[in-house]
Amino acid sequence: MTAACLMSTYQPLALSFTRGLGTRLWDQHGREYLDAVAGVAVTNVGHSHPRLVTAISEQAGLLLHTSNLYSIDWQQRLARRLTQLSGLDRAFFNNSGAEANEAALKLARLHGWKKGIEQPLVVVMENAFHGRTLGTMAASDGPSVRLGFQRLPGDFLRVGFGDLDALERITQQFSARIAAVLLEPIQGESGVLPAPPGYLKALRDHCTRHGWLMMLDEIQTGIGRTGAWFAFQHEGIVPDVMTLAKGLGNGIPIGACLARAGVAELFTPGSHGSTFGGNPLACRVACTVLDIIHEQGLLQNAARQGEHLLDRLRIELDGHLQVRAIRGKGLMIGIELASPYRDLAHRAAQEHGLLINVTRGKIIRLLPPLTLDAREVEMIVRAITRLLD
Protein backbone atom coordinates (compact mmCIF):
# COMPACT_ATOMS: atom_id res chain seq x y z
CA MET A 1 0.00 0.00 0.00
CA THR A 2 1.36 3.43 -0.93
CA ALA A 3 0.90 6.76 0.85
CA ALA A 4 1.80 8.72 -2.30
CA CYS A 5 -1.70 10.18 -2.56
CA LEU A 6 -1.70 11.52 1.01
CA MET A 7 -0.45 14.92 2.07
CA SER A 8 2.66 14.42 4.19
CA THR A 9 1.34 15.93 7.43
CA TYR A 10 2.34 12.86 9.45
CA GLN A 11 5.30 10.50 9.68
CA PRO A 12 3.51 7.22 10.45
CA LEU A 13 5.32 4.06 11.40
CA ALA A 14 5.32 1.27 8.82
CA LEU A 15 2.65 -0.45 10.87
CA SER A 16 -1.03 -0.85 10.13
CA PHE A 17 -3.76 -2.39 12.28
CA THR A 18 -6.70 -4.42 11.12
CA ARG A 19 -8.61 -4.95 14.36
CA GLY A 20 -8.68 -4.13 18.05
CA LEU A 21 -10.29 -5.41 21.22
CA GLY A 22 -10.00 -3.82 24.64
CA THR A 23 -6.38 -2.76 25.21
CA ARG A 24 -5.05 -4.82 22.27
CA LEU A 25 -4.49 -4.20 18.56
CA TRP A 26 -3.51 -6.65 15.79
CA ASP A 27 -1.55 -5.72 12.69
CA GLN A 28 -2.01 -6.97 9.15
CA HIS A 29 0.22 -9.96 9.93
CA GLY A 30 -1.79 -11.00 12.98
CA ARG A 31 0.78 -9.80 15.55
CA GLU A 32 -0.70 -8.55 18.86
CA TYR A 33 0.23 -5.24 20.54
CA LEU A 34 -0.58 -3.71 23.91
CA ASP A 35 -1.94 -0.23 23.17
CA ALA A 36 -0.51 2.32 25.62
CA VAL A 37 -1.47 5.27 23.40
CA ALA A 38 -5.24 4.71 22.94
CA GLY A 39 -5.26 6.77 19.75
CA VAL A 40 -3.67 9.64 21.74
CA ALA A 41 -6.09 9.50 24.69
CA VAL A 42 -9.12 8.68 22.53
CA THR A 43 -10.17 5.05 23.03
CA ASN A 44 -10.70 5.44 26.78
CA VAL A 45 -13.08 2.47 27.07
CA GLY A 46 -10.95 0.30 24.79
CA HIS A 47 -11.27 -0.90 21.22
CA SER A 48 -14.47 -2.47 19.88
CA HIS A 49 -16.38 -2.26 23.15
CA PRO A 50 -19.53 -4.35 22.54
CA ARG A 51 -21.83 -1.63 23.93
CA LEU A 52 -20.39 0.88 21.47
CA VAL A 53 -20.55 -1.55 18.57
CA THR A 54 -24.25 -2.07 19.28
CA ALA A 55 -24.96 1.65 19.69
CA ILE A 56 -23.16 2.56 16.46
CA SER A 57 -24.84 -0.23 14.50
CA GLU A 58 -28.32 0.58 15.78
CA GLN A 59 -27.99 4.32 15.26
CA ALA A 60 -26.55 3.88 11.76
CA GLY A 61 -29.71 1.98 10.88
CA LEU A 62 -31.94 4.69 12.34
CA LEU A 63 -30.55 8.16 11.68
CA LEU A 64 -27.11 9.69 11.13
CA HIS A 65 -27.76 13.33 10.33
CA THR A 66 -30.50 15.93 10.22
CA SER A 67 -28.50 19.17 10.86
CA ASN A 68 -29.02 21.65 13.68
CA LEU A 69 -31.98 23.17 11.86
CA TYR A 70 -33.99 20.68 13.93
CA SER A 71 -33.90 19.48 17.52
CA ILE A 72 -31.70 16.44 18.13
CA ASP A 73 -32.74 14.29 21.06
CA TRP A 74 -29.36 12.60 21.62
CA GLN A 75 -27.65 15.99 21.55
CA GLN A 76 -29.92 17.25 24.32
CA ARG A 77 -29.33 14.09 26.36
CA LEU A 78 -25.56 14.44 26.04
CA ALA A 79 -25.63 18.13 26.96
CA ARG A 80 -27.65 17.31 30.07
CA ARG A 81 -25.22 14.57 31.09
CA LEU A 82 -22.11 16.69 30.60
CA THR A 83 -23.50 19.72 32.41
CA GLN A 84 -24.54 17.55 35.35
CA LEU A 85 -21.09 15.99 35.55
CA SER A 86 -19.16 19.25 35.19
CA GLY A 87 -21.22 21.84 37.04
CA LEU A 88 -21.37 24.00 33.90
CA ASP A 89 -24.67 25.00 32.32
CA ARG A 90 -24.66 24.82 28.51
CA ALA A 91 -22.91 22.84 25.79
CA PHE A 92 -22.08 23.39 22.13
CA PHE A 93 -21.07 20.38 20.03
CA ASN A 94 -18.70 20.23 17.10
CA ASN A 95 -16.32 17.67 15.62
CA SER A 96 -12.86 18.08 17.18
CA GLY A 97 -10.79 19.56 19.97
CA ALA A 98 -9.44 22.38 17.82
CA GLU A 99 -13.01 23.38 16.92
CA ALA A 100 -14.01 23.30 20.58
CA ASN A 101 -11.10 25.61 21.43
CA GLU A 102 -12.07 27.94 18.58
CA ALA A 103 -15.54 28.18 20.14
CA ALA A 104 -13.94 29.03 23.49
CA LEU A 105 -11.79 31.73 21.90
CA LYS A 106 -14.87 33.22 20.25
CA LEU A 107 -16.60 33.33 23.64
CA ALA A 108 -13.55 35.13 25.04
CA ARG A 109 -13.79 37.73 22.25
CA LEU A 110 -17.50 38.23 22.90
CA HIS A 111 -16.87 38.52 26.64
CA GLY A 112 -14.32 41.25 26.00
CA TRP A 113 -16.64 43.00 23.53
CA LYS A 114 -19.46 42.95 26.10
CA LYS A 115 -17.10 44.62 28.59
CA GLY A 116 -16.27 47.34 26.06
CA ILE A 117 -12.75 46.09 25.27
CA GLU A 118 -11.94 46.95 21.65
CA GLN A 119 -8.93 44.63 21.36
CA PRO A 120 -9.32 41.90 23.99
CA LEU A 121 -6.35 39.78 25.03
CA VAL A 122 -6.31 36.13 26.10
CA VAL A 123 -3.62 34.86 28.46
CA VAL A 124 -2.12 31.53 27.37
CA MET A 125 0.73 29.39 28.66
CA GLU A 126 4.25 28.70 27.49
CA ASN A 127 4.56 25.19 25.99
CA ALA A 128 0.78 24.99 25.49
CA PHE A 129 -0.88 23.11 22.65
CA HIS A 130 -4.51 23.83 21.71
CA GLY A 131 -4.84 22.67 18.10
CA ARG A 132 -3.80 23.26 14.50
CA THR A 133 -6.35 25.72 13.16
CA LEU A 134 -4.94 29.22 12.69
CA GLY A 135 -6.59 30.49 15.88
CA THR A 136 -5.57 27.57 18.08
CA MET A 137 -2.03 27.62 16.65
CA ALA A 138 -1.79 31.25 17.71
CA ALA A 139 -2.79 30.20 21.24
CA SER A 140 -0.25 27.37 21.22
CA ASP A 141 3.48 27.64 21.87
CA GLY A 142 6.49 26.30 20.04
CA PRO A 143 8.00 27.54 16.77
CA SER A 144 7.61 24.16 15.06
CA VAL A 145 3.81 24.42 15.41
CA ARG A 146 3.63 27.94 13.97
CA LEU A 147 6.47 27.82 11.43
CA GLY A 148 5.39 29.30 8.10
CA PHE A 149 1.97 30.49 9.31
CA GLN A 150 2.71 34.00 10.57
CA ARG A 151 1.00 36.36 11.03
CA LEU A 152 -1.54 34.41 13.09
CA PRO A 153 -4.91 35.78 14.18
CA GLY A 154 -5.78 36.74 17.73
CA ASP A 155 -4.06 38.65 20.49
CA PHE A 156 -2.43 36.54 23.18
CA LEU A 157 -0.22 37.11 26.19
CA ARG A 158 2.05 34.21 27.06
CA VAL A 159 3.14 33.43 30.64
CA GLY A 160 5.00 30.57 32.29
CA PHE A 161 2.80 27.60 33.16
CA GLY A 162 2.29 27.62 36.92
CA ASP A 163 4.00 31.01 37.39
CA LEU A 164 1.66 33.19 39.47
CA ASP A 165 4.23 36.00 39.68
CA ALA A 166 4.32 36.27 35.88
CA LEU A 167 0.52 36.34 35.84
CA GLU A 168 0.53 39.18 38.36
CA ARG A 169 3.01 41.19 36.28
CA ILE A 170 0.94 41.03 33.10
CA THR A 171 -2.18 41.79 35.13
CA GLN A 172 -0.66 45.05 36.27
CA GLN A 173 0.30 45.92 32.71
CA PHE A 174 -2.68 44.70 30.66
CA SER A 175 -5.58 44.18 33.07
CA ALA A 176 -7.92 46.54 31.22
CA ARG A 177 -7.58 44.49 28.00
CA ILE A 178 -7.53 40.89 29.28
CA ALA A 179 -10.76 38.95 28.72
CA ALA A 180 -9.78 35.35 29.52
CA VAL A 181 -7.13 32.78 30.40
CA LEU A 182 -6.87 29.54 28.39
CA LEU A 183 -4.78 26.61 29.63
CA GLU A 184 -4.51 22.83 29.93
CA PRO A 185 -4.69 21.46 33.50
CA ILE A 186 -1.94 19.04 32.42
CA GLN A 187 0.09 20.00 29.38
CA GLY A 188 -0.01 16.90 27.20
CA GLU A 189 1.95 17.55 24.01
CA SER A 190 4.69 19.27 26.01
CA GLY A 191 5.41 16.13 28.01
CA VAL A 192 2.65 15.52 30.58
CA LEU A 193 3.33 18.54 32.78
CA PRO A 194 0.71 18.88 35.56
CA ALA A 195 -0.15 22.31 36.92
CA PRO A 196 1.54 22.83 40.32
CA PRO A 197 -0.71 22.01 43.31
CA GLY A 198 -2.96 24.95 44.10
CA TYR A 199 -2.24 26.76 40.84
CA LEU A 200 -5.64 26.17 39.24
CA LYS A 201 -7.41 27.31 42.40
CA ALA A 202 -5.27 30.46 42.59
CA LEU A 203 -5.97 31.11 38.92
CA ARG A 204 -9.69 30.59 39.48
CA ASP A 205 -9.63 33.22 42.25
CA HIS A 206 -7.58 35.59 40.09
CA CYS A 207 -9.99 35.34 37.15
CA THR A 208 -13.01 35.89 39.38
CA ARG A 209 -11.40 38.93 40.98
CA HIS A 210 -10.59 40.55 37.63
CA GLY A 211 -13.69 39.51 35.67
CA TRP A 212 -11.77 37.24 33.28
CA LEU A 213 -13.03 33.93 31.91
CA MET A 214 -11.16 30.88 33.16
CA MET A 215 -11.12 28.51 30.16
CA LEU A 216 -9.75 24.98 30.54
CA ASP A 217 -8.69 22.83 27.62
CA GLU A 218 -9.61 19.34 28.87
CA ILE A 219 -9.44 17.76 25.44
CA GLN A 220 -6.78 15.29 26.58
CA THR A 221 -7.39 15.28 30.34
CA GLY A 222 -11.19 15.01 30.28
CA ILE A 223 -13.57 12.02 30.28
CA GLY A 224 -11.81 10.09 33.04
CA ARG A 225 -8.20 10.22 31.86
CA THR A 226 -6.84 11.53 35.19
CA GLY A 227 -9.09 9.46 37.47
CA ALA A 228 -11.86 12.10 37.64
CA TRP A 229 -14.37 13.06 34.99
CA PHE A 230 -12.41 16.28 34.46
CA ALA A 231 -8.97 17.24 35.76
CA PHE A 232 -10.24 20.47 37.33
CA GLN A 233 -12.26 18.39 39.80
CA HIS A 234 -9.03 17.37 41.58
CA GLU A 235 -8.69 21.04 42.62
CA GLY A 236 -12.30 21.53 43.71
CA ILE A 237 -12.98 24.36 41.27
CA VAL A 238 -15.25 24.97 38.27
CA PRO A 239 -14.05 26.95 35.23
CA ASP A 240 -16.19 29.34 33.19
CA VAL A 241 -15.51 27.46 29.95
CA MET A 242 -14.25 23.94 29.28
CA THR A 243 -13.43 22.17 26.02
CA LEU A 244 -13.62 18.41 25.38
CA ALA A 245 -13.01 15.96 22.53
CA LYS A 246 -10.78 12.85 22.21
CA GLY A 247 -12.16 10.35 24.77
CA LEU A 248 -15.71 11.69 24.51
CA GLY A 249 -16.41 9.69 21.35
CA ASN A 250 -13.90 6.82 21.75
CA GLY A 251 -12.97 7.25 18.09
CA ILE A 252 -16.15 8.76 16.66
CA PRO A 253 -15.31 12.45 16.01
CA ILE A 254 -16.97 14.81 18.47
CA GLY A 255 -15.92 17.93 20.37
CA ALA A 256 -17.71 20.04 22.95
CA CYS A 257 -17.44 23.49 24.45
CA LEU A 258 -19.20 23.86 27.82
CA ALA A 259 -19.78 27.15 29.63
CA ARG A 260 -21.54 28.80 32.51
CA ALA A 261 -24.98 30.17 31.58
CA GLY A 262 -23.94 33.83 31.53
CA VAL A 263 -21.02 33.04 29.23
CA ALA A 264 -22.94 30.63 26.97
CA GLU A 265 -25.56 33.33 26.35
CA LEU A 266 -22.92 35.38 24.54
CA PHE A 267 -23.58 33.07 21.61
CA THR A 268 -26.80 33.93 19.79
CA PRO A 269 -28.36 32.30 16.70
CA GLY A 270 -25.97 32.78 13.80
CA SER A 271 -22.92 33.71 15.89
CA HIS A 272 -21.54 30.18 15.81
CA GLY A 273 -22.42 26.82 14.28
CA SER A 274 -21.32 23.44 12.95
CA THR A 275 -22.84 21.43 10.10
CA PHE A 276 -22.02 18.03 11.56
CA GLY A 277 -21.67 19.02 15.22
CA GLY A 278 -23.93 17.17 17.64
CA ASN A 279 -25.27 14.69 15.10
CA PRO A 280 -27.31 11.74 16.44
CA LEU A 281 -24.58 9.14 15.91
CA ALA A 282 -21.79 11.05 17.66
CA CYS A 283 -23.98 12.09 20.56
CA ARG A 284 -25.41 8.62 21.13
CA VAL A 285 -21.89 7.18 21.12
CA ALA A 286 -20.74 9.83 23.62
CA CYS A 287 -23.68 9.05 25.92
CA THR A 288 -22.77 5.36 25.72
CA VAL A 289 -19.13 6.16 26.58
CA LEU A 290 -20.29 8.00 29.71
CA ASP A 291 -22.49 5.02 30.64
CA ILE A 292 -19.60 2.56 30.25
CA ILE A 293 -17.18 4.66 32.31
CA HIS A 294 -19.73 4.98 35.11
CA GLU A 295 -20.98 1.39 35.10
CA GLN A 296 -17.53 -0.22 34.85
CA GLY A 297 -15.99 2.06 37.50
CA LEU A 298 -13.34 3.28 35.09
CA LEU A 299 -12.67 6.53 36.95
CA GLN A 300 -11.62 4.53 39.98
CA ASN A 301 -9.66 2.10 37.80
CA ALA A 302 -7.80 4.92 36.06
CA ALA A 303 -6.82 6.41 39.42
CA ARG A 304 -5.80 3.05 40.89
CA GLN A 305 -3.89 1.65 37.91
CA GLY A 306 -2.36 5.04 37.14
CA GLU A 307 -0.91 5.27 40.64
CA HIS A 308 0.28 1.67 40.38
CA LEU A 309 1.94 2.33 37.01
CA LEU A 310 3.67 5.47 38.31
CA ASP A 311 4.96 3.64 41.38
CA ARG A 312 6.25 0.67 39.40
CA LEU A 313 7.99 2.86 36.81
CA ARG A 314 9.67 4.89 39.53
CA ILE A 315 10.90 1.73 41.25
CA GLU A 316 12.17 0.00 38.12
CA LEU A 317 13.73 3.11 36.55
CA ASP A 318 15.15 4.55 39.77
CA GLY A 319 18.71 5.73 39.13
CA HIS A 320 18.51 5.08 35.38
CA LEU A 321 21.00 7.45 33.73
CA GLN A 322 18.64 8.30 30.89
CA VAL A 323 15.53 8.97 33.00
CA ARG A 324 15.19 12.54 34.21
CA ALA A 325 11.62 12.52 35.58
CA ILE A 326 8.47 10.39 35.75
CA ARG A 327 5.21 12.28 36.30
CA GLY A 328 1.51 12.20 35.62
CA LYS A 329 -2.00 11.84 36.95
CA GLY A 330 -4.26 8.84 36.49
CA LEU A 331 -3.50 7.11 33.20
CA MET A 332 -1.70 10.11 31.71
CA ILE A 333 2.01 9.56 32.37
CA GLY A 334 5.21 11.04 30.99
CA ILE A 335 8.75 9.68 31.25
CA GLU A 336 11.25 12.44 30.50
CA LEU A 337 14.59 11.25 29.14
CA ALA A 338 17.92 13.03 29.38
CA SER A 339 18.41 12.98 25.61
CA PRO A 340 16.45 12.01 22.49
CA TYR A 341 16.31 8.37 21.44
CA ARG A 342 16.00 7.57 17.75
CA ASP A 343 13.01 5.49 16.68
CA LEU A 344 11.88 4.83 20.25
CA ALA A 345 8.20 4.27 19.36
CA HIS A 346 9.20 2.01 16.46
CA ARG A 347 11.50 -0.06 18.66
CA ALA A 348 8.88 -0.36 21.39
CA ALA A 349 6.40 -1.75 18.88
CA GLN A 350 8.81 -3.95 16.95
CA GLU A 351 10.81 -5.39 19.83
CA HIS A 352 8.31 -5.39 22.69
CA GLY A 353 4.82 -5.30 21.15
CA LEU A 354 4.06 -2.05 23.01
CA LEU A 355 2.55 1.05 21.42
CA ILE A 356 3.83 4.30 22.95
CA ASN A 357 4.01 7.94 21.93
CA VAL A 358 7.14 10.10 22.11
CA THR A 359 6.64 13.85 22.30
CA ARG A 360 9.20 16.65 22.17
CA GLY A 361 11.70 14.05 21.00
CA LYS A 362 12.49 12.65 24.42
CA ILE A 363 9.35 12.24 26.51
CA ILE A 364 7.57 8.90 26.47
CA ARG A 365 3.85 9.57 26.83
CA LEU A 366 1.66 6.74 28.13
CA LEU A 367 -2.10 7.07 27.59
CA PRO A 368 -3.54 3.54 27.80
CA PRO A 369 -7.27 2.78 27.84
CA LEU A 370 -8.95 3.29 31.22
CA THR A 371 -9.70 -0.46 31.24
CA LEU A 372 -6.03 -1.26 31.89
CA ASP A 373 -5.49 -3.97 34.53
CA ALA A 374 -2.64 -4.78 36.93
CA ARG A 375 -1.17 -7.49 34.68
CA GLU A 376 -0.99 -5.04 31.78
CA VAL A 377 0.65 -2.46 34.04
CA GLU A 378 3.45 -4.96 34.62
CA MET A 379 3.70 -5.61 30.88
CA ILE A 380 4.16 -1.89 30.22
CA VAL A 381 6.76 -1.52 32.98
CA ARG A 382 8.73 -4.54 31.77
CA ALA A 383 8.70 -3.36 28.15
CA ILE A 384 9.70 0.23 28.99
CA THR A 385 12.51 -0.96 31.26
CA ARG A 386 13.92 -3.30 28.61
CA LEU A 387 13.51 -0.63 25.94
CA LEU A 388 15.54 1.94 27.88
CA ASP A 389 18.15 -0.60 28.95
Rank of each mutant, 00 (worst) to 15 (best):
R360G: 02
D343L: 04
A345T: 15
A348T: 08
A348G: 04
E351Y: 01
I335M: 07
K362Y: 10
L354P: 10
R342G: 12
L366R: 10
R342H: 12
E351K: 02
L366E: 11
I356D: 10
Y341Q: 14
G353M: 05
R360H: 09
R365N: 10
D343T: 12
L367R: 05
S339P: 07
I333V: 15
G353V: 06
K362I: 09
L337P: 06
L367E: 15
E336W: 01
N357G: 05
I363T: 15
I335L: 13
G361P: 01
R347N: 02
S339H: 15
T359K: 00
T359M: 00
D343W: 00
A349I: 07
L355M: 02
D343Y: 08
S339D: 13
L355I: 10
I335Q: 11
H352C: 05
A348R: 02
S339G: 08
G353N: 01
L337N: 09
A338F: 07
A338Q: 15
E336L: 12
I363F: 06
A349M: 03
A338D: 14
N357D: 04
I333W: 08
K362N: 13
I364M: 08
G361Y: 06
P340R: 07
R360V: 14
I364G: 04
A338I: 14
L367C: 12
E336N: 07
D343M: 09
R347P: 06
P340W: 02
D343Q: 14
N357A: 00
H346S: 14
I335A: 03
G334V: 13
Q350R: 03
V358M: 04
T359E: 11
I335W: 10
V358Y: 03
H352I: 00
L344F: 04
H346M: 14
D343V: 01
G361T: 08
G353I: 03
L355Q: 05
I364H: 04
L366T: 06
L354H: 00
D343E: 15
S339M: 14
I356E: 10
L354E: 02
V358P: 04
H346I: 12
S339F: 13
G334N: 12
E351Q: 07
I333L: 06
L344N: 07
A338E: 14
D343I: 01
D343K: 06
L337Q: 00
G353T: 00
I364V: 15
L367P: 06
I363S: 11
R365I: 14
I333N: 02
E336G: 01
G353P: 09
L366K: 12
L354R: 09
L366G: 09
A338R: 15
E351G: 09
L344T: 03
P340T: 13
K362V: 05
I364K: 05
I333M: 03
R342S: 13
I364L: 03
D343F: 04
I333G: 11
L344R: 00
R347K: 14
A348I: 03
R342M: 11
I335Y: 08
